[in-house]
């Protein structure tokens, strides 16, 4: 299945990412609770991409493991990168306007969570939520 791209350049795009992730999560037959968790995680990460990464994109795709469907969302930005990923994942750590739950909270809401960050390249965060 092909991935759907959504640019993240403003507030309204965070809402569009949420809507796109919801649509794909419904198609992948995630339960309502799992849809809600994934959409919430995507909202946190899209806001990070906008605020800390200076904008970027989200790529949303239905994926399949051996037995079950899932949804993968990849957030990419060309921002300054995350200097200390372990610190950034700590609850209560905040450099912006949130409650310091964005990255760590998003990680708890999904099944797979992967960060690649480099000051020269920006940050790529990949999350996957599987249907139960």
């Amino acid at each position: 299945m092909t991935a759907q791209e959504q640019a993240i350049a403003g507030d309204a795009d965070v809402v569009r990412v949420r809507q796109l992730v919801r649509t794909v999560a419904v198609a992948a037959r995630l339960s309502l609770v799992d849809q809600t968790k994934l959409v919430t995680a995507a909202s946190e990460l899209a806001r990070n991409t906008l605020i800390h990464g200076g904008g970027g994109s989200a790529s949303v795709e239905q994926v399949t493991s051996a037995v079950k469907p899932g949804v993968r969302v990849v957030f990419r930005d060309k921002g300054p990168g995350i200097a200390d990923i372990a610190l950034a994942l700590t609850d209560g750590y905040t450099s912006g306007s949130g409650m310091g739950l964005g990255l760590g909270g998003a990680k708890r809401l999904v099944d797979q969570f992967d960060i690649v960050s480099d000051p020269a390249e920006g940050t790529t965060i990949t999350v996957v939520k599987w249907a139960r």
Binding site: T36, K37, L101, G105, L109
Partner: peptide
Amino acid sequence: AVAITLVELGL
């Protein structure tokens, strides 16, 4: 579903 997610998020 929102309540469940909020608690897991840590809020």
